[in-house]
Write a protein that binds this DNA or RNA. Sequence first.
DNA 1: CGGTATAAGTTGAACACAGCAACATATAAA
DNA 2: TTTATATGTTGCTGTGTTCAACTTATACCG
Lengths: 392, 392
Amino acid sequence: MAGINAPRVSGVSTDQLRRHNLSAILTLLHHAGSQPRSALTAQTGLNRSTVAALVAELAEYGLAHETDPDPTKQVGRPSPTVNADERTVAIAINPEVDAVTAGVVALGGKVVDRVRHETEQPPSARDAVAISADLVQQLTAGFSADTRVVGIGVAVPGLVRVDDGLVRFAPHLEWTDEPIAALLSEATGLEVAVGNDASLGALVEHIYGVGSGVDDLIYLNGGPSGIGGGVIVRGSLLGGAGGYAGEFGHTRGGGAGDTDLESLVRRTDLLAAVGRAAAAPDELDELVLHSDDAAVLALVHRQLAALAPALGDAINILNPQLIVLGGFLSTILERDPAYLDERVAAHSLAAAYDDVRIARAALGSDLLLIGAAELTFAPLLADPAGYGRARP
Amino acid sequence: MAGINAPRVSGVSTDQLRRHNLSAILTLLHHAGSQPRSALTAQTGLNRSTVAALVAELAEYGLAHETDPDPTKQVGRPSPTVNADERTVAIAINPEVDAVTAGVVALGGKVVDRVRHETEQPPSARDAVAISADLVQQLTAGFSADTRVVGIGVAVPGLVRVDDGLVRFAPHLEWTDEPIAALLSEATGLEVAVGNDASLGALVEHIYGVGSGVDDLIYLNGGPSGIGGGVIVRGSLLGGAGGYAGEFGHTRGGGAGDTDLESLVRRTDLLAAVGRAAAAPDELDELVLHSDDAAVLALVHRQLAALAPALGDAINILNPQLIVLGGFLSTILERDPAYLDERVAAHSLAAAYDDVRIARAALGSDLLLIGAAELTFAPLLADPAGYGRARP
DNA sequence: CGGTATAAGTTGAACACAGCAACATATAAA
DNA sequence: TTTATATGTTGCTGTGTTCAACTTATACCG
């Protein structure tokens, strides 16, 4: 029943049309990568001459540039390759319990630099802002004069009011109602956008990962501090009224009573089962996948059994095409995919279950930086001309 | 995080622009009703002259017409009232366990006629199609020559694959994989679109009911045959991969084990508590709301307690602005709203809970006919010129 | 090696649509 | 009756896309 809408009240005039088309092209370059101009023509359905003009305008704004055609074995005149201009960058920041990570992400989605500042204990909001401002200094110090910084994007493990970048509640950082966007913006003088880490993960898996081309998906990430999630609906991130949507970790898991999912399915339990106090994500993955210990497998099954009803409910409500599991959830999935499938099937309607595939997340450690950057690129992608004209 | 999108691949040219604006105006007329042309100008943000031209074009297609200005106490030249043309109609059909209802819904959303054909037992798909075709005959027989029938919309209590109008599973009608759209289209020669009844209810409550103006909401309806639901995201109906989204009745309720919501919260139990075998919706409402029986209140509380965790999970996942309860769910809500509120608060994250309001459904028996019609009007609203030029 | 087919770039004219400004008109208020 | 106000009406302007004709660069084939 897609496409049945409420009043789209807004009228559209010719300049918005141009804006839309510029946006379509730049978004294509940013998300689908460099490609021949003819490919842009094909994908947008626009006329050759129109696309040429649009690309020229983007080039004028310093957002795109053309390079020599890729050697191809095709007949016909070669089409120049169009690239997103990597001199336009976003700064991405990800505060976590044990460190603050920052990076530089170029238009096109490539992480070109990253720094990590480890902390003894979870940083307070004030500390995180100070550390971040410092990292931003470090990262921007080496920029050449023609680098354009669009802004700062922050991925926070907690509930974020997206409108104004207020962190409502981040349990593991012990933050409550911290106006991160305002503080960081004041400290750096840059535009700051803040989002939930798992929601941004969902977005990035949709754009660049296993969810590429899939318009309805659910993403669940299992991290050291719990389970977060995000939902992609009709190709864009589901925010909800305040931007808090996707909190699967706090829905009920498949245990007795009302216990929430993230207290039934925990990374620490998995670590304990393989006899470790701590481990890097890849390390844990390795340990669990190659363990012959029956106790480990039993735990994996208990965790999958707790996860399945939550996924079943989500499938019945959202009817997604794909469920992406990241972090240690990806590990337990990989350990016994059939088991999870079977359990999920038992907890969901056949028609909806038939549509869905459950897959491991494809992207690794750069995921959150790219996601945070995406937050900052969003307004640029929506209106390239506005940015182009503002800062020449 | 709304507005962060995947590639919008499509380019837009001037004719699509015209289409969009025609669509915006007609949708406004259909959903917000007759209004002065100046109001259309204000709402669309378009120029006076543009709106005049657009309305003239719609009038040419026989989709809108202008009437004398409403007497108003305002200074300035009065603006003519613009109306959706009621000679453009959709046929709406709703097969249920005990009857097949059909109606005529005019552009503008008014139900202008309805017929009900009662059945001894739940109609088979074949019977339902035959009955429907017959009702369509009856309804269209009296049409004047200038009435234009856009098509037939069917609201089915079951899982519907929206693309091709296949009913995957309708337990109470005992239908499995019935190609309703194809059958009915063949029998009547009209375009047929099929949707899930509760999803269409959600849509209609969003457009015309308590959800008017609210872009993120959840609708749950309690009927004799179970609990159905629908989700509105960013102002349009959430379909999901196959169009099955919104099956809240089959998520887990707040009981022991994995019992689903609709087997914990049942209309029959409520009927039994008030000592009745059957009752019309309004009658049951009356009986429950005015009962002093402690057993009735206790049952209402048990049902609300089972409903609350399901709503809490939905709130955490979807972060809606509004939850609309219809049917007997509306009754038990009304009996003790504070009780439900408190229970839901306990089962959802504070930040998300703060955004949400729980309300009774506003629309009555015409809801499903209007919803089914909406399904059929959708393509017309999306491209008025296409219809206008096709059938002059 | 030259000719042909093919696909895409380039250019200038045509076309469609929304905006704009000036003027006309219908109402309320003074 | 006059004035202020809001809106309709009309013809013109500007902008963006398309179209058609022409040009160019590549592969393929004899």
